[in-house]
Design a protein around this nucleic acid. Structure first.
Length: 416
RNA sequence: GUGGUCGUAGCUCAAUGGUAGAGCUCCAGGUUGUGGUCCUGGCUGUUGCGGGUUCGAGUCCCGUCGAUCACCCCA
């Protein structure tokens, strides 16, 4: 039997409910922060991604690209930032600054899948464009923290590691590194925990630095630039979620200031989210037509899902959120009353209650079983008593008899 | 792209080279208009696919596809 492509997922009803819950959580927290949702096309010109990655970057290898029927080279989007930069550049003058935008979209990368990494995934992105102050940095960090907290995680489950590319560049330049040497040194700093010291020292040779130089810079701790950001987070009561950690450099070349990654405390998983300040990127991607400072981050659904599953508190919160809740199941106790039952079902649905009923004749006992399986709160029994109807509250097993016309208004008022 | 591990029912897994099984799910029943439990019965397999070794392969060998983990990389 044909199955889904490697790294692509089927969303059966349970998976879909889960995904929707994640998306709705992202959206509600973002709106609380005053961010506006946007989206762009799933398919873009391949040039959009080539422009940003001149030097044979991995991401171009991972592009789902093809030639469309019009002879254009196109690609499924592997990330949002180029699209965002394009959109911002096109209408930059129409929006007041700062622009606080977020999106929840699916992305595609043709790479070998493993834990926390698929070929198609959902990612939340949030950016503040047009504001360079540390207040914007703190706002983005606070959003990232509250986004994770909204799933039931606390400071014992995750941590935001905060670093600063500018501090790194200042340090490297003070040691005489040119641009290429800086890039090389940052790449090595990113691998300090993963590659043996002598190998890294060999790589670092052109920069005139050594592993111990990098380590002592990291050990020097928190640069002054963190001050305002940390204060703004402290004022929100969010200090406990952030740790200055200069060992975070992130792979991308375009970051210019604060960078951060969110990790689970057990460090079982790859980064839950990551981002930073990229003040030159909009200008670069728009060929100079718009020059705006920006900071943003992304959070994927795959690692987040793993962490939820591994954290009892979060898993329980998700389970509770997904518990099915049917307001009322209409039991057709007497088939001769099916028409009346249908009318009753419709009256529930028209006032906004969720209602279900058996599509074919079934014994009353089976119908109650069905009501249970569907997680119904009430059962309404339509039979010989019509126009009177018995209403049963399934959890308490209590019953009352009401006129059919009174049922929908009653349940509706109870619910609200 | 490189390497390790693993592919048996819808799901989770058994079966020394010797007749492919269990639990759960699902479906149907358990006679009068009331429940998640319980009882009975039933369905599903070219053991991922293709070769090979063997009297005989789910089991051993090769290939292939898929899954998974790591490397790489992480926008």
């Amino acid at each position: 039997m044909l199955q889904a492509l490697p790294g692509f997922r089927d969303f059966y009803p349970g998976d879909c409910a889960r995904r929707n819950h994640v998306v709705e959580t992202w959206r509600s927290v973002s709106r609380r922060y005053g961010f506006a949702e946007f989206d762009g096309p799933v398919l873009e010109s391949a040039d959009l991604y080539r422009k940003k990655n001149e030097e044979g970057a991995e991401i171009l290898e991972q592009l789902y690209s093809f030639t469309d029927r019009g002879g254009r080279e196109v690609a499924l989007r592997p990330e949002m930032t180029p699209t965002l930069a394009r959109m911002v550049a096109a209408r930059e003058k129409h929006y007041r600054k700062p622009m606080k935008w977020f999106c929840v979209s699916n992305f595609f990368r043709h790479e070998r899948q493993q834990k926390g990494r698929l070929r198609e995934f959902l990612q939340f992105n949030a950016d503040i464009i047009g504001e360079s102050s540390p207040q914007a940095d703190a706002e983005i960090l606070a959003l990232a923290i509250d986004l994770v907290r909204a799933f039931g995680f606390t400071a014992e489950h995750f941590v935001v590691r905060l670093s600063d590319r500018k501090a790194w560049m200042d340090f490297l330049q003070s040691r005489g590194c040119d641009e290429a040497a800086c890039r090389l040194a940052l790449a090595c700093a990113d691998k300090l925990e993963r590659e043996p010291e002598d190998k890294l020292n060999a790589k670092l040779a052109p920069t005139g630095l050594s592993v111990s130089d990098l380590k002592s810079f990291i050990a020097a701790g928190s640069p002054e630039a963190f001050g305002p950001v940390l204060e703004a987070l402290a004022a929100r009561g969010l200090s406990g979620f952030v740790e200055p950690d200069l060992s975070i450099v992130r792979g991308l070349a375009y970051y210019t200031g604060v960078v951060f990654e969110i990790f689970d405390r057990s460090k079982n998983l790859r980064a839950l989210a990551g981002g930073g300040r990229y003040d030159g990127l909009v200008k670069g991607l728009s060929d100079g037509s718009a020059d705006l400072p920006a900071i943003g981050f992304g959070m994927g659904d795959v690692v987040l899902g793993h962490l939820i599953d591994e954290t009892p508190a979060a898993a329980e919160k998700l389970r509770a959120a997904l518990a099915s809740h049917l307001d009322v199941f209409v039991v057709v106790a007497d088939e001769s009353c099916r028409a009346e039952a249908l009318g009753l079902v419709q009256s529930f649905r028209e006032v906004g209650l969720s209602a279900d009923f058996p599509l074919k004749p079934a014994k009353v006992g089976k119908q109650f079983q069905e009501a249970e399986h569907l997680g119904a709160r009430h059962a309404a029994i339509v039979g010989q008593e019509w126009p009177q109807v018995k209403l049963k509250h399934l959890a308490t097993r209590s019953e009352e008899t009401l006129d059919h016309a009174a049922l929908a208004p009653k349940l509706k008022s109870q619910k609200s």
